[in-house]
Amino acid sequence: MKLGLDPRVRLLAAALASLCLALLRQIPSSLLGLALGMALLGLVRPRPEHLRRRLAAVNIFTFFLWCALPFTVQGESVALGALNLSSAGLRLALLVTLKANAIFCVFQALVGAMSPSEAGCALKSLGCPPKLAFLFLVAGRYIHVLAAEWQALMDAAKLRAFTPKAGLHGWRTMACLLGLLLVRGYDRSQRACEAMRLRAFTGNFTTVTRFRAGYADVFLAVGMVAFLAAVLWVEAIHA
């Protein structure tokens, strides 16, 4: 399901929530933040296969922290079988995992379904520098083109019996393919630049998208602020 909400409001709400949740230092308030994220995600219901892959990307880093922190942080220790784990380290790892997943859920629910061009236009109307919004829009537009180009280069190399192996030959071949990708990107940018100049492009990127905020947006904004205030209140009680 896609939220029929103004992208600007979604972006601002997601930014505000990320900022508030990133500042938390207590477990109960982080749990509340995770509940907020999961409730929003439940409303949006994104495709599970997308969610799983992205969730794995977030938790690779937290997994690394779970492997390192319980053994490296100084302080009281808890015995778990033969292992001596630091309770402060366990707490820190839990806190970071809760916060990272809470922010991930909020972000996925509000911004996950937004296309790069939608996000670029919303950023521009929120006062992001025009050159930066342009970079974001154009880079977003060409990522799939260049990814297809890379796939074609790899396929061509594989048809010529190249298998990526560790070693100087494999690395040099892949570096040349990477160089070729950059060269093709450069050539394409020259052509696109000339084509846009022919169409009287002077640096101003006009868009036909018009955003309009409605009652649902006001509801989202007020609800988000109220819930975040509750989270910060729980944080203050437990501090």
């Binding site: 154009v138 880079a139 060409y142 890379w150 892949m174 990708l181 450069y186 940018s189």
Partner: peptide, 29 residues
């Protein structure tokens, strides 16, 4: 951004996209 003019912004955008794609490539080690 101040040093970047609109003649080169397209190139920078494309190289930014290529950086994105290139950083997803796995190199065997």
């Amino acid at each position: 951004l101040r040093r970047l003019d609109y003649d080169r912004i397209m190139t920078v955008a494309l190289l930014s996209a290529a950086f994105f794609v290139g950083s997803l490539v796995h190199i065997p080690v």
